[in-house]
Amino acid sequence: MCDTCGCNVTPGNEHLVRGRGKHAFTAEGKVAVEVLESLLSENDKQAVHNRAHLDKYGVLAVNLMSSPGAGKTTLLERTIDLLRDEYRIAVIEGDLETETDALRLRARGVAAIQITTGSACHLDAHMVHDALHKLRLAELDLLFIENVGNLVCPASFDLGHHLNVTLLSVTEGDDKPAKYPVMFRAADVMLLTKADLLPVIEEFDVGRATANLRNLASTIPVYSLSSKTEQGMQTWINWLHQQMAMQRKRLVGGETMRPRVQSDGKRLHGKEGAAPSAEA
């Protein structure tokens, strides 16, 4: 699939990286091989496999990321309550320890698989793959993946999901998009949670939070909501409906989508949609 950079050594392109191929000898007994593959290609291949699996069963997978305590689990509880009659929902929960979150979500009547990562600060595609095998995908429409609470590492790992949702609770401060650009650049939607507290948290300015996000050249929607008072919840629910409809439309056309940040693929291969993988 990639005969320009030789990133996949196959019988068909092996001649490029062997013998007197385009990768010249540097010195006696030395061969320089151009690779140009993502450093996380092991993870990315697994992610592509996961996504193909999800697409096969028509499941939309949404990855939730935020700091610990921003309200991911509470948001999921309310979201499940509001969508349970329309979609068959399941959750994959990532935490360093405990089954607490999975128990909370099972109490809402959905399947919840807990991944305890031990000391790992993020989920990766392999962990999600193992969890997927514990779910009956044929009986699902919508899969939420609640990532480990962390504004740093989860942003760099494609799990095989379709969309990234980044939560910023108003208690954290409106400067977070400027401080954690990698995370906020990865978002397909930013949710300002605990918005019921805005009247008492004068320091948090929704306009400033949005401006910090726009400074990252991000044009994504920003919604303020409160899982507690349910203010603003409907806008988020509508967004999910819209995404679900788009996913179903894509699948009819045999297409898929990757979450927002797709760093290397596009640039390396010159044209949009040509991922360095089995997706093509």
Binding site: K30, V33, V35, L36, L39, S41, V261, L268
Partner: peptide, 12 residues
Amino acid sequence: DEMILASVELNV
């Protein structure tokens, strides 16, 4: 935003 394995030099 790159994280690319650009090349390797092998001793053969």
